[in-house]
Design a protein around this nucleic acid. Structure first.
Lengths: 255, 255
DNA sequence: AAGTGGTCTAGACCACCTC
DNA sequence: AGGTGGTCTAGACCACTTA
């Protein structure tokens, strides 16, 4: 009974560190400012570098910090809201600076689960269009669009390659008259190719947006877009973007 | 020169490990099966435990594994698709097993960014309803709904507490006749209270869904829902859920 | 009590960037 | 060349679960 809980349950060091750093970021640092290096910071807080790094990783995951090898750790700007349109996609790209830029197009076998969604034979090649999305000069997403040949029959004649071919595929797809979309969002880690495009290391956390494009007949195409989870906030819905910044909501207060 | 690139650019050990483990999971393990413990696995692959853990963390992040302290590491089932309705919310909860369950309701000051979105004075208390969402017997999300007193004026008389009070607040809100919603999705880490509700450790990766509920007049309420990122795939859109499983799409093939 | 994953340490070396 | 973050090691101890 007389037992006095000094610190209820002691939280892990890295967790406490994260909190301290987070508050320091709010009060003592400006966006873009560089932090002391990891060895100095660890020494200053009296912890091993690995522990300090655990705290930094969390903060980076939450979009508060940006770390670049060989350069340093800087305070990240608030996440950019990226609209994931509910309305039919802008296939042509380039609308108000929120552009999708076709990179190239190949013909290859779709991964099994995607072939299943398309309803095509997994062994049958489909068009694979690669494009990237830029917002405010930053690449925020890389996407692969899988289009079965049956959706774009008029494409056999086309001999172009690269962005030109990519545009052609998307244009044909657009002409089908898409009727709706199914979409899902989940957490993933960047594959090597996407990571390169996004200027991140492989395995970096990404938001994977899978979209199914529907016509009256069925699924016309499937796209898999990977957004940088550290810098992006995906926005949906009727009107403009939300303006709520990162996790500065406090712990819930007791009643 | 005679220099032969043995392995082009050597990928990190943990990355390679992850790939190997991932393939082993596909071929040699069934969902729910328990893996050897970390010390054994590390020894088997000839790496330090920390390195092995780095690979396991990635796989857990991708929803392939589930780890529980004191218990072990098991093969996770495919992520469950959780519908994030585009249609007006089911405030009453309990619809086809996809229920939101009110937990309790308090009156407290909203965090600054939320007060800003609500357009209320940050110093003025608002109703805070806490509820959780279950899917297939699993808690998949914890949510706080912030409702300004001005949105639910008839609530002053209510004396109830706990779930009863929570239900009352939501019922009043529902009666307003909501006109639409703005929604955003971003990556976050679970606060201590949410982590407890979600049966995860603090800091676990979560998908934060922020919703703004609109009436003709303006913003009637704001909710912040945190979904388990390891087990959930958020689905949006016109019809049913997508059926694409986790990251088994291979590296992009060269043209 | 035994076994599991979670935290932490104090080093070492590497890959990358900038000067 | 020197500084940064990224990877890796070989330990130790702790918190939690189960039997």
């Amino acid at each position: 009974m007389g037992t006095t809980q000094l610190e209820s349950v002691q939280e892990p060091k890295y967790w406490h560190l994260k909190t301290v750093l987070s508050e320091a970021l709010d009060s003592d640092f400006a966006v873009g400012e560089i932090l002391p290096n990891e060895r100095d910071l660890a020494a200053r807080f009296g912890v091993a570098r690995a522990t300090l790094r655990q705290a930094l990783e969390q903060l980076e995951l939450e979009g508060r910090l940006q770390r670049r090898r060989g350069v340093g750790t800087t305070v990240a700007p608030p996440r950019v809201g990226v609209a994931v349109s509910t309305a039919p996609h802008e296939w042509a790209g380039d609308v108000g600076g929120e552009a999708w830029q076709p990179v190239d197009s190949t013909v290859a076998k779709a991964p099994a689960p995607i072939a299943a969604t398309l309803g095509t034979d997994p062994a049958e090649p489909v068009h694979v269009v690669r494009r990237i999305r830029e917002t405010q000069g930053q690449v925020v997403a890389a996407e692969l669009v899988y289009v079965p040949g049956s959706s774009v029959p008029d494409l056999s004649a086309i001999e172009a390659s690269g962005p030109v071919r990519a545009r052609a595929v998307l244009r044909e797809l657009h002409r089908l008259g898409l009727q709706g979309q199914d979409r899902s969002v989940e957490l993933g880690s960047a594959r090597a190719d996407d990571a390169k495009e996004l200027d991140r290391l492989p395995g970096a956390p990404v938001l994977v947006v899978t979209t199914r494009y529907l016509t009256a007949v069925g699924t016309a195409a499937v796209s898999v877009a990977t957004y940088r989870a550290d810098t992006c906030r995906l926005t949906f819905g009727d009107s403009g973007a939300l303006e709520i910044s990162h996790d500065d909501q406090p712990e819930r207060q007791a009643s």
